[in-house]
Amino acid sequence: MRDLYQRLALSPDANDHQINSALARCPNSALRQDATSVLAVAPHRETYDTLHHTLSDIGRLRARLGLTHGAHWQGDVANDFSLPPDNAISRHDELVDRVSHAVSLYNRWRRLRGPWLLIAVFTVGAGIGLALGFALSLGLGLG
C-alpha cells in the first residue's frame, strides 16, 4: 500500500479538482494510471481513505513508540507511512506524573485540615456579614 496523496504532493482531503490537476501534472504514467483508478472513483477512494487513515495512525504510533524499523514494517508501507522519529513524551510516564501530582495535592489538602478550614472561613464570613447588616440597619434607624 502506497501513500498516493504523498506521491502526488496532495493533502488527504484534496477535492476532485485538485486531484485532477495533480493527475494531469504527474510525469509517471504507471502512477498516474493507479491514481486515476483509485482517487478519481468515489467508492474506491472511500475504501482507500479508510485504510489510509488507519495506516497513518499506525505510522504515528510506530514513530512515538520507536518502532519505525520493525521486522513487520517493510516495503512501500514503511517508506510512505513512516513519520520522522517523534520525541513526544511517553504517555505512561505522563500518566504517572499526573497521578503523583494529584496525590500530592490531595495530601496537602488533608494536612491543612481542609474541611475544618472551610467551615471556619464560612463561619467568620457569615459573622462579618451579620455584623455589617446590623450596623447598617442601626444607622438607618438613627437617620
Binding site: M1, L51, L67
Partner: peptide, 12 residues
C-alpha cells in the same frame, strides 16, 4: 486489510 497492519504492529 487494516487488521493485517494492526496485527503486524502488535507483533513488532
Amino acid at each position: 486489510l487494516a487488521n493485517h497492519y494492526i496485527l503486524r504492529f502488535l507483533a513488532d
